[in-house]
Structures are given as C-alpha cells and as structure tokens.
C-alpha cells in the first residue's frame, strides 16, 4: 500500500517536473531551476553527512570554486564551449576536494566540522581579498557557454526552459549515479564507516582512502552544481564560497532527511519555498529562517523524510531509521 503510494507520488512529481516549463512562467522556471541546482548540491553534501557521517561545514568551497573556474576560463568576447568548461570546472572542484580532503580527513568529529569551515573560509579570503577575480564584487560571465554536439546546438542556455531541461537531466543523472555508488561495494564500506569506523579498520579497510574518495565525489558533484549556478546567474562572487551557503545547504540536507536520496531534494524544495515566502513577508526574513532551523534541530532531527517515515509513507526512510546507529536520537 505505502509503496504504491510512493510510486504514484514519484510519477506525479516526475510528470510535473517535465511538463512544468510548458505552463510555468519565466520567473518560476528560473526558480525551479535554482531549486534543482541546490538539490544537487545538497545531495552531494548528503553523501558526506548522511551516508559517511562526515559533517562538513565548508561544502560551498567546491560549489564556489567551480563557478570561479568557469568565470576565469570563459573569454570575455565570445562564449566558452560547454563541454570543455564543464569538464574543467568539475575536475577543478574535484582536485580542490582532493587537496582539502587529504588535510581535513586527518581529523574527525568536532575538529572536522571546524577545519572544513576554516578551509572554505580560506578560499573565501583568496577571492575576497585579492584582485584575481574581481575581489568582493565578484566577476561577470558575459557570454553563457554554448552546448554543441558537432555543429548542432540542441539547447540555448539563454532560454530558461532549455536551461531548465539541462539542469533536470543533470539532477536525475546525479541521483542515479549516487544510487549506483551507494549500492556498490564501495557504498557498503562507507555505510560501515558511518556506523563504526574502528570496526571497518579492524576488518582491514583503509578507511581514510574510502573517505577521501567519497569527499572527492561529493566535491565534484558540488562543483557541477556550482558550475550550473554560475551559468544561470552569469556572475560569481565570494558569497558562493561563503559559510552561509554551507550552512543553508546543510540545513536542506537535514530538513529533508539525511541518508536518503529523496531527502535533499525535498529539503531544497522546502527551504527555497520557505525563504521565498519569508522574504515576501518581512525584510528580517532570516529571523524566521533561524527560528525554523532551531525548531527542526530540536524537534525534527530526522527531517521531513523522518516525519513521513513516522506515518509509514516512505519505505526508504523507514528502512533508514532501522539502520540508524543505536545512540542516535529517536
């Protein structure tokens, strides 16, 4: 019964997402594109927080660096190639994740939280204080990259619907990719690391390497999201690397329900809608967001997916709660 409900829900969601640009107006198409990008970003952080048990508070570093790579790579007078700039941005984010990961993964627990934040802040200062990319004002991407397959241009990114479909395809691709990774033996190992790292090490797994690979994958996906965000807005600034973004994407993961594939998507949708509503209400909207965050931390530690699991709607989330370690909150 509940499984059928879930399938029906997912199908309705899928149809809505595909058909949406045909009926929605420009503003909403761009809004939903933004949400999908944030959902991808939150999904990548979920790989660390929800599946591996690594609470990173500096994940925006990889999101932002990919955007900056595009902005610095794109020539001012003509458009950059989509494939080359995408590859460069994502691999740049991955390399950055490799370097930072190799350092931060030497620590764990509370140290890890503080050190990830500190390194992200270091990158923030590099772009904020120096003139390499426009300082605190950021830098414009004058021409959007052009997607070419041979001499055929299937999508024009200046058209919001076209760009929306590109982002939708990437979002679905990322979710399928993460599903495959998590079901692979690699995914089993990182789940083991989350529950008990000492035991995994005793079993002979080199846990540092597994965590590092996971950190790099998460960094690369965050880079993909950051690249798409930079293409959408046509501008990058240091805020893209800032810790407010890291904080709010962490909030999306937890609000949705960490350790589930659908959680971050749900979290991104809910958070962005809340922000939009609160912004319309008052100029002090962050007060309301802060209050929501505090309430979620106090009363909804498993997020919306956990809430759904309570009413036995989502079997995935219910399974997750059974697998949770015994010391977790109920």
């Amino acid at each position: 019964m509940s499984k059928r409900l879930l399938i029906i829900g997912l199908s309705i969601g899928a149809v809505l997402l595909v058909a949406f640009p045909l009926i929605g107006d420009r503003f909403y198409i761009q809004f939903v594109t933004r949400i999908l990008i944030m959902a991808m970003f939150a999904g990548s952080l979920n790989l660390l927080v929800g599946y591996t048990g690594l609470v990173s508070l500096g994940h925006a570093a990889f999101f932002g660096i990919a955007g900056y790579i595009l902005a610095l790579y794109a020539p001012e007078t003509h458009a950059a190639g989509f494939w080359s700039s995408l590859l460069l941005s994502v691999s740049g984010a991955a390399v950055m994740a490799l370097i930072i990961g190799a350092l931060v993964l030497r620590t764990s627990g509370i140290f890890f939280i503080m050190v990830t934040l500190a390194f992200a802040e270091m990158l923030f200062f590099v772009f904020h204080d120096t003139a390499i990319a426009g300082g605190s004002d950021g830098i414009y991407i004058h021409e959007r990259p052009v997607l070419m397959i041979g001499s055929w241009q299937p999508l024009n990114f200046a058209n919001p619907s076209h760009f929306y479909y590109l982002v939708l395809v990437f979002s679905i691709g990322v979710i399928l990719f993460m599903r495959t990774v998590l079901r692979s033996p690699f995914g089993q190992v990182i789940a083991g690391i989350r529950v008990n790292e000492h035991r995994m090490r005793a079993l002979g797994f080199h846990t540092f390497r597994y965590k590092l690979v996971c950190f790099v994958i998460a960094g690369a996906i965050a880079g993909l999201a950051g690249y798409l965000a930079a293409v959408q807005f046509g501008v990058v600034n240091p805020e893209m690397l800032g810790w407010h973004l890291s904080g709010s994407v962490l909030m999306m993961v937890i609000l949705g329900g960490m350790g589930t594939l659908a959680g971050p998507v749900l979290g991104a949708f809910s958070m962005m809608f809340l922000e939009e509503i609160f912004q319309a209400l008052t100029k002090h909207w962050q007060l309301l967001i802060g209050a929501v965050i505090v309430l979620v931390a106090l009363f909804l530690p498993r997020g919306l997916a956990g809430l759904l699991a309570k009413f036995n709607i989502s079997p995935a989330a219910a399974g997750q709660s059974r697998r949770a370690p015994p010391h977790a909150d109920v």
């Binding site: 927080v49 508070l57 939280i113 962490l250 802060g290 931390a297």
Partner: peptide, 14 residues
C-alpha cells in the same frame, strides 16, 4: 554534533 551545529547556526541567524 550535527544537531548542535544546526541549532547554533540557527541562533547565529536569529
């Protein structure tokens, strides 16, 4: 730690 981070992050905004 995750819930501690979240709650105190909320307090920053407030």
């Amino acid at each position: 730690h995750l819930q501690q981070v979240l709650l105190t992050y909320g307090l920053i905004l407030i």
